[in-house]
Design a protein around this nucleic acid. Structure first.
Lengths: 155, 155, 155, 155
DNA sequence: TTTT
DNA sequence: TTTT
């Protein structure tokens, strides 16, 4: 089975702060929206139209904590992950769907001055797998945190 | 404005036939679902779990017609595009959301024997822009169809 | 024929200015190097190692002119394109190879203050196809320039 | 440091068998070439031109062994990785460059009948990190092998 | 050197 | 040759 690929890559700005949720057992996730923009010119009217697309980003565990610590509303970020559509029951008993990007890798693109993640440059922190040996205090200096995948979180 | 990126790349199998919708003015879109799979081993139980993720694919105009002509349920395809979440009113007056992948490029990955798109190999057709000069009868032989973007389709 | 994919996506910093080359017939290309970094911790020694990878970027025509106008050494950029390995004869008669990224799309990631491409934000300009209708004076406001593909440039 | 991205994604056919190299200490790498194709129509002559691009793929350790076992010349594969340009001295004392794709993830796209990796479907095996807990005997059924990154291999 |  |  498989031979499939499910990949999303986004560069956008945070529309809100990272919201953390903690679970029993020590796991946690962070959620935040990011916006991407498209501009085009309407053929008929000739006017330029800009549209904004909002994406629901979900990060886990250490990566979530790094995002919460270093990301703020308005910051630019590169995010790579998987599309996942969750299903849930509305209060009215109807099924609702919500599509999220489950983050596997990310990189901060807003320079932070005088800060930890990297003073005065384009900060970075990432969940690239295979490098969980690095658990730096300075997340921006390396691709530190592995995005763990099998932690039985309820999503 | 912008400096953003909104990109999705999928390899998966069609869960159904391509459904066409024609609009006044000559535009059309095709819709079909594709499935991607993930497998992992549950940490606690040790059992292997396979999950399927479904994606709503939307293709436009010539690309839609090529997909309708050459793709069937079960076929494997590579699809590249943009995430777009549409909003609509349910019959109950509530706002619903549906996230789609608006296709910009694609490649058939199921070999077709004795067929047009390419006899006995991995067929291909694609909406890569910048090559709209090619309008081949044999879509698999090239990246023929431009995915037009500004056609004021209602989505 | 085909059913193949050849895609490169980079975020990095310019190691030098954009070098333009003009051809008879009006075509032109711009070349510049960009650097990406990887950090990892050496297993044996425990020391952190940072390596830099250099990439040869090639942009064409209008996109090249936008890059030349708005990009400077040190700027951060997102670049998407195709891998192409050129062959050439060294002075010693030996065949040499050089691998380049032929740009299809790009986005400026270094904020420019008070400038054209977009005052105080993450500038952007891009060669996305299908939008060659937009030929803005302010490239950062939209994805303006189509990366033309069939212009018989000598590479 | 960083905030950079170095990503390559290819779908192509193996031009040769996987060549293994074993190192002291138990590490190994596999190398193989894959071909991607582009077709376009020459503007002046109107004739269709097909070009082939060759890519040097490098896989490590368990992933290399899976590739060697299940891939053959002509097979189609999806490969994701990083660009890396190696430098070496030619016999004439001149510096030569060779650009490789260091694989991080892959998926077999050639259906194998009656075989292990998955009977009669699109086989798959992959080095996705974060899932090294799975070490299946049937590589196609899951994303089994982690592409280890810090093993001090000489490349 | 692949594939169609 | 970039960046932190």
């Amino acid at each position: 089975m498989s031979g499939t690929l499910n990949k999303v890559m986004l560069i956008g700005h945070l529309g809100d702060e990272v919201k953390m949720h903690y679970f029993e057992g020590g796991n946690c996730i962070g959620r935040f929206p990011i916006a991407t923009n498209e501009s085009y010119t309407n053929r008929q009217t000739g006017e330029k139209v800009t549209t904004t697309e909002w994406h629901n980003i979900v990060v886990r565990n250490k990566a979530a904590e790094i995002c919460e610590k270093y990301l703020s509303k308005g910051d630019k970020i590169y995010v790579e992950g998987r599309l996942k559509t969750r299903q849930w029951q509305g209060e009215d008993g109807q099924t609702r769907y919500s599509t999220e990007i489950q983050v596997q890798d990310f990189t901060f693109l807003t320079p932070k001055e005088g800060g930890m993640p990297n003073q005065g440059g384009g900060a970075q922190a990432s969940t690239t797998q295979g490098q969980q040996r690095n658990q730096p205090e300075r997340p921006a200096d390396t691709r530190p945190v592995q995005q763990e995948e099998e932690d039985d979180l309820p999503f």
